[in-house]
Structures are given as C-alpha cells and as structure tokens.
C-alpha cells in the first residue's frame, strides 16, 4: 500500500520531521506533500496517510494546514474508507492548547468519515526528546501492525 505523508507547518519543524519520516520509510517510497498543496478530492482509499502537524498561535492549525482546513469545510468530502494516523507537535509551555493542531486535524478527518489508526502521538518541543526519537518508532509500530 502506498504511504503518503501530509504535513502542516508554520516554522518548518513539522516539515523537517515529515522529510525525516520519508527518509526513514524510503523502501516504501512515500509521497510527501505540504497540506497547503493537497486537495481533499485527492484522498485515495489505496493509500495510508501519515499526518504530521504542529500547533500555532492560540491552539490554531499551522499556516500551511489552514488552506486544507478551508477546502475540507467547503468541499465536505466523504472520506469513508480513508485510513490515517496523526503525529502532532506541541509545546507544553502552552498547556491549554497543547497539540490542538493534531487534535483538530484528527477531528476534521474522522468527522468526514476517515478512520484513525492507532493513537495520536504528540511531541513536546519543551521536552527533552527529539521529535524523530518519538516519531520514527511510532511509524515503525504502525507498519508492524500492517497498516501499509
């Protein structure tokens, strides 16, 4: 099954992580797309989606995910049969809105009928772990469960 990594970024941290996941999965030859360049009409049931997103401002989606959110709202697509997983990036210095970006995208996709696989995982920018150290084992675990 094809793997497609979609990322929403504001400062570039989520973009870098998306590229690292892509390098890690090179034998699956995943596609990597900035959410601002992705149209909900292009979701495909033969593909597994890895969504990587930060949170920005007051718990909002990062800038590059906002055009996607607008298209989701205006197109209201039926995403039944679409499977995805979400890796969020947050900063616990702002606990009230920690990882709202990942939460919002998850709710947006499940609300349209897509199926979340596994649990949403969140990296904390103020913690001591590197995002890769959390994200790459998470991806490996998803693949071990046979998602793609």
């Amino acid at each position: 099954m094809q793997i497609h990594i979609l990322y929403g970024t504001e400062t570039g941290n989520a973009e870098m992580l998306a590229e690292d996941i892509s390098d890690h999965l090179s034998e699956h030859a995943p596609e990597v797309t900035n959410l601002e360049d992705f149209d909900p009409a292009d979701f495909d049931t033969g593909t597994f989606y890895l969504v990587v997103t930060s949170t920005y401002g007051d718990g909002e989606l990062p800038a590059s995910a906002q055009p996607f959110a607008e298209k989701m709202a205006s197109q209201a697509p039926d995403l039944s049969g679409i499977r995805f997983a979400v890796f969020g990036m947050g900063d616990s210095e702002y606990p009230e809105t920690f990882n709202f970006g990942g939460k919002r995208l998850e709710e947006m996709l499940t609300g349209a009928g897509a199926e979340l696989v596994g649990e949403r995982v969140t990296h904390d920018a103020s913690g001591s772990d590197m995002a890769d150290d959390l994200a790459l084992p998470w991806v490996d675990a998803l693949l071990a469960e046979g998602v793609a």
Binding site: G12, N13, M16, D91, S92, E93, D124, A125, S126, M130
Partner: peptide, 15 residues
C-alpha cells in the same frame, strides 16, 4: 530564555 520550545527551530538550521 524560558521559551526553549520556540528555540527548537535551531535543529533545522544545524542541518
């Protein structure tokens, strides 16, 4: 100095 999470972009620049 107490916003270390904001400084995390440095990891991009190290590359």
């Amino acid at each position: 100095p107490d916003h270390q999470g904001t400084k995390a972009v440095i990891r991009q620049f190290e590359r």
